[in-house]
């Protein structure tokens, strides 16, 4: 039995204009940062979103939060009182809607305003939209979430410069969760931390999810972190989805050659993989000039004529498992 959907992303496209060389020239071309991605995040799950540089994972995360203009497609939130078309919201409506979705940043230094006390930082999602709330109510809520994030309440009157990276990240998490959002995008939330601290933050995120029932879209380049925290994984390459499925299954039996290559490439301390490793040659192509046909065809060791001509459909290959590869069945064995 699968959980009901919370966020439905349909045929999402985010293109960025490439400025011409001359001053004031109109856009010369586009970088298709996210190109036709369809993805459903289920209520209460952690969906891992992995990809290398240029994959569009950060862009996708920010587009869903309406932090970037979307070129085309649809984003629908299924809240308790009915579905909401997020792209149709504007101005005040959008600002009011924001309490349902939040972002946890990668850089625990840049994401906290050094001039505000920890209390004010955490309280921002409560105070900024201008809901009528008494200071007392806000304080109470801030204390509650701070305690949940294992922050000493004494810290609330301090400024961010008093804290190390790990503690700052807790503050960022507390801010994201204070308004009790259903959906949180974690954008490389632990990538800037030392390993010994990173584990602590990952545990905290998992605990909070259990307590609060939050849904995470967990964006990272680090597959081992994804393996640790997510229920399902989506693999992006040059703006397109390559594979999607339950974490354990993907890691045990990747269906897309790119996923296989990605998994083979991780330097690991534990035993080797159960599948035959795939080594890649060549560089990641420039996202402004992606290859024709399958985006991965220039680096895929199994690429054939068809791959270079025809964009493979993103299709369900087994129960709950999707991949965009013409020859997935053949290659799987």
């Amino acid at each position: 039995m699968t959980a009901p959907p919370l966020v439905e992303i349909r045929n999402l496209k985010v293109y960025f204009g490439v400025r011409g060389k001359r001053m004031l020239q109109k856009a010369r071309g586009y970088v298709r940062a996210v190109d036709d991605v369809t993805l459903t995040v289920r209520r209460g799950e952690t969906l891992g979103l992995v990809g290398e540089s240029g994959s569009g994972k950060t862009t996708l995360g920010r587009a869903v939060l309406r932090a970037l203009p979307v070129t085309a497609g649809g984003i629908r939130f299924h809240l308790e009182d009915g579905p909401v078309d997020v792209l149709a919201l504007s101005g005040r409506e959008l600002r009011r809607f924001r309490r349902h979705m939040q972002l946890i940043f990668q850089d625990p230094y840049a994401s906290l305003d050094p001039r505000m006390t920890v209390r004010d930082i955490i309280a921002e999602p409560l105070e900024a939209p201008g809901h009528l709330r008494s200071k007392r109510e806000v304080d109470e809520r801030v204390r509650e979430i701070a305690a949940r994030c294992r922050l000493n309440l004494e810290f609330l009157r301090r400024f961010p410069h008093a804290f190390s990276g790990g503690q700052r990240q807790r503050i960022g998490i507390a801010r994201a969760l204070v308004a009790d959002p259903e959906f949180v995008v974690c954008d490389e939330a632990v990538s800037a931390l030392d390993v010994s601290i990173q584990a602590d933050i990952l545990n905290l995120l998992m605990d909070l999810q259990e307590e609060l029932g939050t849904t995470y879209l967990f964006i990272t380049h680090d597959l081992s972190v994804v393996a640790q925290i997510s229920d399902r994984v989506a693999v992006l390459y040059l703006g397109r989805l390559m594979e999607l499925g339950p974490t354990a299954e993907i890691f045990a039996r990747p269906m897309h050659p790119y996923t296989r290559a990605l998994l083979s490439a991780i330097p690991r301390v534990e035993a080797e993989h159960r599948f035959a490793p795939v080594k890649l040659r060549g560089e990641i192509p420039d996202p402004a000039h992606p290859p024709q046909g399958c985006r991965f065809s220039t680096r895929c060791p199994f690429a054939r004529e068809r791959c270079r001509e025809e964009v493979p459909a993103f299709r369900e290959l087994a129960r709950d498992r999707f991949a965009a590869c013409h020859f997935a069945e053949e290659l799987a064995d």
Binding site: L65, A67, R95, R99, S111, E124, R175
Partner: peptide, 14 residues
């Protein structure tokens, strides 16, 4: 372009 300004925007700040 500071992250904390984006954070404020995503918190519903005008």
């Amino acid at each position: 372009n500071e992250d904390y300004v984006l954070a404020a925007r995503l918190s519903g700040a005008g």
